[in-house]
């Protein structure tokens, strides 16, 4: 409990630091918002009036507090390009990103864990070696090239899906999930390879532990030893990596959305960077950073639940 409170406090502090940095980067550094709004021909009086009305003359901490309060109330500012509230622009895109995340994480989770244990168990045999090499090759492929390959092989050559098609969730929810699937696979594949490798390493080092010998000496079968005794221990170091992956996936894959032409947050972020639409950029980036920080901290807390050895500290 004490740990939980401590962790929450430190999480909030980190969030504040990050948000302050964001504020600095996007509100202060880009230069005088009044000049960029009104153009260089504006008279000094006009600029001054604008600054006064927007509160740009207040000291930085006051502006930060106002900015932060706005964020907490769901007011992320106004897009300079679309001249509409950012919050409204984001909601559709968030749906796409979140569903893509959930789909790819499920796909990733249910393949990587059993596969990792099996690869370790048969590490000396042909199955283990081949899948190990396969994992290495998959890891060497950039996620967007995986996407391109998927489009090329399954979309264009085998015609198993229509590339670059998007179905809005309102039209057909299943169709929506279906059109996300190739992208979800492209996101999941390299992550499967990462976790399989880590889990294999973790299982291999657990294999050598004395308790494994004890389990065998009780007459337990090797499947029981691997999936009951070893897996539970081997998962402890892997939890952190799982958390990092979950965070990364939830934050959205900027590149994959681009490859599959999906209207998610990442693609919007890239186009907003192109048009220097800073209110949108800062809102999306803050979302991504916050997701990563919150999930990582939750995983740290979970870690303490999983490992009985650190429970009492």
């Amino acid at each position: 409990m004490k740990y939980f409170i401590k962790k929450t406090v430190s999480m909030i502090i980190t969030l504040l630091i990050v948000s302050f940095l964001m504020f600095l980067v996007f509100e202060i550094i880009p230069g005088d918002a009044a000049v960029s709004k009104l153009g260089t021909e504006a008279t000094p009086e006009q600029v001054e009036r604008y600054r006064e009305s927007m509160g740009l003359n207040d000291p930085v901490p006051v502006r930060y507090a106002r900015w932060l309060a706005g964020y907490l109330h769901g007011d992320f500012g106004t897009s300079t390009k679309y001249e509409r509230p950012v919050a409204g622009l984001l909601s559709d895109k968030l749906t796409v990103t979140l569903f893509l995340a959930v789909e790819s994480f499920f796909f990733f989770f249910f393949i990587s864990i059993p596969l990792g244990v099996l690869v370790a168990k048969y590490s000396g045999k042909a199955f283990g070696r081949i899948s190990h090499l396969l994992m290495q090759i998959i890891m060497a492929i950039t996620s967007f090239f995986t996407g391109i390959l998927l489009v090329f092989i399954f979309g264009i050559t085998l015609k198993m899906f229509t590339p670059y098609r998007f179905v809005a969730p309102g039209d057909s929810f299943l169709g929506f999930l279906g059109c996300l699937f190739p992208a979800a696979v492209a996101i999941a594949l390299p992550k499967i390879a990462t976790v399989v490798r880590f889990l294999k390493q973790s299982v291999t080092s657990e294999e050598r532990q004395d308790y494994v010998r004890t389990a065998y000496s009780k007459g337990a079968s090797s499947n029981r030893v691997y999936f009951l005794h070893i897996l539970k221990n081997a998962m402890i170091p892997v939890t952190t990596i799982l958390g990092m992956i979950l965070a990364e996936v939830m934050a959205g894959s900027i590149v994959i959305e681009q490859v599959f032409n999906l209207p998610g947050l990442g693609r919007f972020l890239v186009s907003s960077i192109g048009s220097r639409d800073f209110p949108v950029v800062s809102a999306i980036m803050l979302y991504m950073a916050a997701v990563v920080i919150i999930i990582n901290n939750l995983v740290d807390i979970l870690y303490h639940v999983v490992d009985p050895r650190i429970q009492n500290d």
């Binding site: 532990q209 004395d210 308790y211 000496s217 009780k218 007459g219 005794h229 050895r309």
Partner: peptide, 24 residues
């Protein structure tokens, strides 16, 4: 052979802490 392990023949080891599964 497994039918003998743990019933007819058992073994105890040098380091009891590491010989017991830490998470069970």
């Amino acid at each position: 052979r497994r039918a003998y392990k743990g019933t007819e023949i058992t073994q105890i080891f040098q380091e009891p802490l590491t010989s017991l599964n830490p998470v069970l």
